[in-house]
């Protein structure tokens, strides 16, 4: 079963209290952030802190990603030099716009890995799409390397890049969302939705997550631990859905043994896509079949 990424919790890289507690909230994935959450004159401080935390704090079974600064900034290279040798589960690269810069990033990562005798296939890369140009190139970006195993959308920056004001309903970035999902699905990798900023609006978060799930996002970035349970609830199949999926798989196995590929349950046709969806449902519910 693949790693689930229903929730990816942002943790500011210069905040010891939050870094030491990151693993306890039950998020599927953690994003230790060296980029937007860190002041420009504290970049060294955050980098050194994250390095020390990665070396000594247990994040239990949670996937740990580090968001580095862009290579166009004076901080990006140093972030990679410090973090890549520690081999977190993933590096998240912000504002990915072209395949060319993605190639540059991977070349740098792999040369650091070579220097430290590390394999090239352990740590993955999450490409963040935060500009109109990035959205236009997203399919190529998703396809470029096996190391890229998730595409994520940065809604705040994209909205700004597109000069959209008053965008609370998200309609302005709706096409981008769908293009990103499409590019990810076409390459069989994860698509992660942007954060929901109003932490006190639980209902708004639920609605937006339901929408993200409906259009195909694998999960959602999270800025406050309180948002985790709501997103998990949305992504967790209901008991009725689980029962039905279980029944489909059982019938499928029985029919397969008898050499029958397509059959019906309660008068509804069951074929390969329905079976695949049932498997996905049981995977999400962490049920073996």
């Amino acid at each position: 079963m693949k790693t689930k990424r229903r929730t990816m919790l942002y943790i500011p890289g210069n905040n010891p209290a939050m870094l030491q507690q990151g693993g306890i909230y039950g998020a599927d994935s953690l994003l230790l952030d060296l980029e937007d959450a860190v002041a420009l004159n504290e970049k060294d401080s955050a980098r050194i802190l994250v390095k020390n935390m990665l070396n000594s704090i247990s994040y239990y079974n949670t996937e740990v990603c580090v968001r580095v600064n862009h290579l166009d900034t004076p901080f990006g290279i140093e972030d990679l030099e410090t973090i890549v040798p520690l081999q977190p589960d993933a590096i998240r690269f912000p504002k990915t716009e072209t395949v060319k810069e993605l190639k540059k990033l991977i070349d740098i990562i792999e040369s650091i890995e070579n220097k430290h005798n590390l394999p090239h296939n352990k740590m993955t890369i999450h490409a963040m799409i935060e500009t109109a140009l990035g959205v236009q190139n997203v399919f190529e970006i998703a396809k470029f390397s096996k190391r890229v195993d998730a595409i994520t959308i940065g809604g705040q920056d994209l909205t700004a890049d597109m000069n959209i004001v008053n965008a609370k309903d998200g309609s302005g970035i709706d096409l981008a969302r769908k293009m990103i999902v499409m590019a990810a699905k076409a390459n069989n990798i994860d698509a992660i939705d942007t954060v929901f900023v109003d932490v006190n609006d639980e209902e708004g978060l639920r609605l937006e997550t339901e929408y993200a799930k409906k259009i195909g996002f694998t999960g959602k970035a999270v800025i406050n631990p309180r948002q985790i349970d709501i997103i998990h609830e949305v992504y967790t199949p209901t008991e009725a859905e689980i029962r039905r999926a279980f029944r489909i798989i059982k019938e499928f196995k029985k029919n397969k043994d008898a050499g029958i590929g397509v059959f019906a349950i309660d008068g509804k046709m069951v074929d390969a896509p329905v079976v695949a969806r049932a498997r996905h449902t049981l995977d999400l519910a962490e049920i073996k079949y």
């Binding site: 010891p16 504290e42 060294d44 802190l49 000594s56 004076p74």
Partner: peptide, 24 residues
């Protein structure tokens, strides 16, 4: 915690040595 103490010492010392990297 200890990793934080070490990190803050390391940061302050490299700054005082003018050896800090990748920051403003």
């Amino acid at each position: 915690l200890e990793p934080t103490i070490i990190a803050r010492l390391e940061t302050a010392i490299t700054r005082a040595l003018n050896q800090q990297k990748g920051t403003l």
